[in-house]
Amino acid sequence: MPTRTYSQAINDALAEEMQRDENVILYGQDVAVWGGIFKVTDGLLEKFGPDRVFDTPISESVMVGAGVGAASMGLRPVVELQFADFVITAGDEIFFKAGMWRYMHGGAHTIPLVVRAPSGGSGFGPEHSACPEAFIMHAPGLLCAVPSTPEDAKGLLKQAIRLDNPVIYFEHKLLYQMRGEVPDGEVLTPFGKAVVRREGEAVTLVAWQGMLRRALAAAERLSQEGIEVEIVDPRTLNPFDRETIIESVKKTGACIVVEEAYRTLGVGAEIGALLVEEALPYLDKPFKRLAIPDVPIPTSQHLVDAIVPSVDDIYRAVKDLVD
């Protein structure tokens, strides 16, 4: 199988879908001529021309809002927000227009819109480093993808472009250069199907993107001590694959969610509530969250390291729970 970087996989997905369907258009700040500030869309302008790949002014509201209008009229826009934090900047357009325009008009419109949102990482400061997927998961009408591997980056994006509902597609900035196998031919990853990245009995870890990599590293260390954890990667947060997590917890009796986001009312809080509502008789240990304490994400790396869950944090949390 060929290997591609996460970034190349996204570029491949865009190119393939634009080739397949002329209604797919791609725009955002600096995406065309410059190829995107993270160079994810490099070369697409040359392939598909300025009518389908174009730059926009610094106008997040109209970027997303126009995406809703264009989608309702039959185009399949893919909009790149330069940073995922800007889903808040375009809040009216994301939450009300993309999320509710169809519902508010009694189903008269379909909104096949994809908003690509580079999330996470560090060194960018409080307004450029967040993983705001919990905001999206909380809102009705918005699908939410969080690919963690090049294969899923490609498969989820291609699937997202084909869905008739708005998708907020979070690309983790620290994964762009991650290399991984991507199968030849059509790669489509279904929404709402989590994947078990590692099997074990001791505890269920739920993690995705940057935190998944750390969870896997911690699992390797724990395994050397005879502790086998199970790691579930949800892949999409809406729709959310409740069954896979519940099945895993039935086996392990314990669950830790690791997320690169604020702790209070995060995705982990939702998973905790889900387990209490639907899997309480199987929980043998307190449910745990590893998340960013409720402070903004600072710029300096060592300060970021002080608040974002690390491999050590995950390792210790598992040890504390199983000992």
């Binding site: 258009i25 809703v68 009229m73 419109h109």
Partner: peptide
């Protein structure tokens, strides 16, 4: 095509409609 709940919210939607009309109709 409808109306935004937030006042003036359809300005941005109209741009997308215009983009689609230019290409498709």
């Amino acid at each position: 095509l409808g109306e935004s709940g937030t006042l003036g919210g359809s300005f941005v939607v109209s741009v997308g409609v215009g983009m689609a009309l230019k290409r498709k109709q």
